[in-house]
Design a protein around this nucleic acid. Structure first.
Lengths: 248, 248
DNA sequence: GCGCGACATTGACCCAGATCAACACCGAAG
DNA sequence: CTTCGGTGTTGATCTGGGTCAATGTCGCGC
């Protein structure tokens, strides 16, 4: 079996699929060249743990493809997902040397990593990186706060609808999709992972998904393949202001 | 009645109580001088709204003294507090011109404001500000994620204990306090505001506070004045890993 | 093809916390 | 001093979602 760390994937930054969304988005070509020198790729299989909370972390990086989760666990085992890492999302925190959360790949995943020290050093010299990181962090903070409303005040049904909304929206932004047609996508998470995201039990997740299906808000093929005939209906179920500007 | 906007409080940055914790913490004295030129103070009374979600926001700033809350509200009135703004905390987001949340002063409050455009312009020229803002934003993101665990997975009693923990900890860091003695502080929030923070109803907050009192975890004088005889006991009730490094 | 393990669904029951309601406290205005 | 509105407490009851348990589905290795 192949050691995951030693993969020699080579990828020109210029052709990178996340070139315009990741920390490096603002970099000029000369800056990119310097990044190119210190970067390396790591590949993870579905289910594999990238890092455990509390572990020493000597790298930072971007998700290139695949999905990972950020979770926090209490001693008695209760767990809460605190972030969903999608392609272009940043992992790690400059200026800190242990991981604050468990990071687990939920699908096969490729990360573009930088050793922490050279990256930090580079960050202090190239404001474009720090600027972009600030922007991304502010976005994540907004997302976290949005999620606080979901966790604190929404019903189980609204929570499920909110999650579907987010996944659908993101999926639409990837494959720049047909405006207004029915949305079709796959759930990248197990029922249990959804439960951990939503602060519910997996049974409740299952029941509410069944209920939404019965009510025609969504339809399912298999366990994971979802069709949303009317996105505004879904938004409504999520309790969000209708038409959250998605297709604006 | 005095127009709050026109107060001419003058304060040298050098003597500012939040000099070493706010966005300006890393600034050299020449940078400080330039900030001094574009800053102005605003004062708010307890209960006053600083800005409504969605409103145009042409300034950013720091809380100098007092406390404000950041809340999100659904159409049907359910509200969730998504942030507690304490002295030195930053308000507003560079690069965005409407407020994302309601900001309300819960005590009398003074803010040190900067018009957004000059501040942004200055930020791009002085990396010290951007660096510090990044650091502060990362801290807030961590706090938000910590809070997601509270909202998603903790019981009502644990939620209350968690909130008390946070307030106690912050209070201790202000008045650099006696190590290990009983902690004493005032709750800066009404029961309703606590409920909005914790994703509970005010009745449940009241009941759980009574329960903690009955069980000797805290004692109360009046409605707001709290004594914590044993901080580790409180931490334990919060479900946090005991000894969260507070006195380390 | 069979059996196994991971994932998912569904039912029965229970309980933490919401809801509804009454009342207590207290500082400010008259 | 009295009234009144904002704040807080406590009780009775209800219910959404948790818990426990049985069963279903599917892909994979043998």
């Amino acid at each position: 079996m192949l050691n995951e760390r030693s993969l020699a994937i080579t990828q020109e930054c210029q052709d990178c699929p996340i070139r315009h969304r990741a920390v490096c988005a603002r970099c000029e070509s000369d800056e990119l060249e310097r990044l190119e020198e210190i970067k390396y790729y790591r590949k993870f299989e579905a289910g594999q743990t990238v890092i455990w909370s509390g572990d020493r972390m000597d790298f930072v990086g971007s998700v290139v493809s695949g999905i990972a989760t950020l979770t926090q666990t209490m001693e008695d085992g209760r767990t809460q997902m605190v972030g969903l890492l999608l392609p272009s999302d940043f992992v790690g925190r400059p200026g800190r040397n242990t991981a604050a959360y468990d990071v687990v790949a939920t699908t096969d995943m490729v990360m573009c990593c930088f050793r922490k020290t050279p990256f930090e050093e580079m960050m202090s010299r190239t404001p474009h990186i720090a600027q972009r990181l600030l922007e991304m962090t502010l976005d994540e903070l907004d997302a976290a706060r949005e999620w606080m409303l979901v966790l604190g005040r929404k019903t189980a049904r609204e929570k499920i609808a909110s999650l579907l909304t987010i996944i659908a929206r993101r999926d639409a932004s990837l494959k720049l999709n047909t405006i207004d047609g029915p949305l079709v996508f796959d759930l990248p998470l197990t029922r249990e992972a959804m439960a951990d995201y939503l602060g519910l039990t997996l049974e409740t997740v299952s029941r509410q998904i069944s209920a939404l299906r019965k009510d025609g808000v969504i339809s399912l093929e298999g366990k994971r393949h979802v069709t949303v005939p009317d996105f505004n209906r879904l938004l409504d179920e999520a309790g969000d202001d209708a038409d959250g500007g998605m297709f604006a």
